[in-house]
Nucleic acid binder design. Structure first.
Length: 151
DNA sequence: GCCAACGTTGGC
DNA sequence: GCCAACGTTGGC
């Protein structure tokens, strides 16, 4: 079992896009960064992730999602019409991957970036490292637990 | 809107 | 392989 943080701009795709009754599972697609891609390929069905909202009024962790597939090729990369199209990704040799995520929980309030930075138990997490731009980052179990404690 | 930090591209 | 130029991310 692995733990992750998955980051997205809520104006593009936010946790509320997963809280609708008939749409609690969505593919997490569009990851086009190699480091993040490598993390996705290490994900397994049954892993858990925090949903992080970036580039918004109060950036921070807003809830919990579950990884509900193993990684599989991101078909958006195959579609020339799609904004995530990549000529160099082919069916024979896919370059980009995605997983499906399922809504689990939305916190009553955001665990803000500011609070995450202030918690000494989280001082090593990639998410808050200066200059980090990865949309997918791993967490240790102890770090996961520390964040749950804050919620 | 600003700008620092980072990743990618492409000329050489 | 180096590195300048450029595009993007994301906090503030």
């Amino acid at each position: 079992m692995n733990y992750w943080v998955m980051k997205s701009e809520p104006s593009v795709f936010g946790i509320d896009d997963l809280t609708k009754k008939n749409k609690q599972t969505e593919p997490w697609d569009g990851v086009r960064n190699y480091q993040a891609r490598n993390f996705i390929r290490n994900m397994r069905c049954g892993d858990y992730a925090f949903f992080y909202h970036s580039n918004c009024k109060t950036p921070g962790i807003v809830g919990v999602i579950k990884i509900t597939t193993d990684p599989y090729p991101d078909s958006a990369a195959f579609n020339p019409e799609h904004r995530y199209f990549d000529l160099k990704s082919t069916h024979e040799n896919p370059r980009w991957y995605r997983v499906d995520v399922t809504f689990k929980e939305k916190f009553n309030s955001v665990i803000s970036l500011e609070k995450l930075k202030a918690n000494p138990l989280l001082k090593n997490i990639l998410l808050i490292r200066k200059g980090n731009r990865l949309s997918i980052t791993p967490l240790q179990k102890a770090e996961w637990d520390a964040i749950i404690q804050m919620s």
